[in-house]
Computed example of a mutant assay.
Amino acid sequence: MQEIVKEIYTESIQAQIAAGEVLPGALETAAFTVAQSLINGNKLLCCGASSCQMLADHMANLLVNFYETERPCLPAIALNPVLTHLSSYAEQNDSDAFARQVRAFAQQGDLLMVFSINGNEKIVISAIEAALTKDMRVIALVGDDGGELSGLLGPNDVEIRVPSKRPSRIVESHLFNIHCLSELIDMTLFPQDEH
């Protein structure tokens, strides 16, 4: 059993090293995009497909509260995958849950940050399509080959694509990338003297 645990650690470390080789530029661009949007008085809407929803909740929470250094609250909302107030509608159209909230809450200039495993989850695809109708920029954290999601992104959007096909490694990398983004956003908006 211990050897299996060591193999899992090794695989995870190798996935992080591979991501570290290809993602720094995208993470820098995403952090600057979020910071600029917040400076302009806009907000960040976050959503995630199935196992990634906790990541969307975490990202919004880190901005509203703080990452490691206490600072003013930043406007971020984690969209709810369940439209409880429209339960009969939601049962028939669960892939539209995020899209309806984007249409209801988002304004031009806001950002949509989506979390996905392979880029083919309908609930995330419909959210991006709704964001595009509002001229919103999209930051997409995705894995595998990016799926249908990648084809929806334009030149002003940011794709943070984890170079892995394994869902567990993708989720681990997304969490790491959230923390990296949070630190970069804080450094951009609230620079501190290191001395």
Rank of each mutant, 00 (worst) to 15 (best):
L132F: 10
A30V: 07
I125N: 03
C46R: 13
L132V: 11
M187V: 14
E159L: 15
I125C: 01
Q192G: 07
I13P: 04
Q14G: 05
V22P: 02
A49N: 10
L83N: 10
Q107H: 10
I123H: 01
V5G: 09
Q108S: 12
H58G: 12
E3T: 15
V142P: 04
F190M: 04
L62V: 11
P75G: 03
D96K: 13
G109M: 05
G41S: 00
L63T: 09
S150N: 11
L27P: 04
E121T: 14
E28P: 00
V102Y: 00
C52H: 11
L38Q: 00
G151D: 05
A49E: 06
I13E: 12
G41V: 10
A99N: 05
H58M: 14
Q16A: 15
E183K: 12
L44I: 13
A60N: 01
S150E: 12
I77R: 11
A60Q: 07
A76N: 07
G147N: 02
M136I: 10
L153Y: 00
Q14E: 13
T84S: 13
E68D: 11
V82A: 06
P72Y: 00
L79N: 01
Q92G: 09
D145L: 12
P72K: 08
P72S: 05
G146N: 05
E68K: 15
I178W: 03
Q101R: 01
A56F: 07
G25P: 05
E28G: 11
Q16L: 15
A49D: 09
S50P: 05
I13V: 15
R100M: 14
S116K: 09
Q192E: 14
F115K: 08
D96V: 12
K43P: 02
Q192N: 04
S50K: 14
R161W: 00
D110Y: 01
G41R: 04
E21K: 15
Q36V: 04
Y9E: 15
P24F: 03
L38P: 03
F32Y: 14
G25V: 13
F98L: 08
E7L: 10
P81T: 08
Q53H: 11
A130Q: 06
E121L: 11
E7H: 06
V142F: 01
A131E: 00
L27E: 03
A127D: 03
L141K: 09
L55V: 12
V124Y: 04
I17C: 07
Q53M: 09
G25M: 13
P155N: 08
L86S: 04
D96I: 09
R169Y: 09
A99F: 06
E70K: 14
G20Q: 04
C46F: 02
N61M: 13
I185T: 08
N93L: 12
V114A: 03
G146P: 01
M1F: 13
N42F: 03
R103D: 15
V34L: 10
K43T: 08
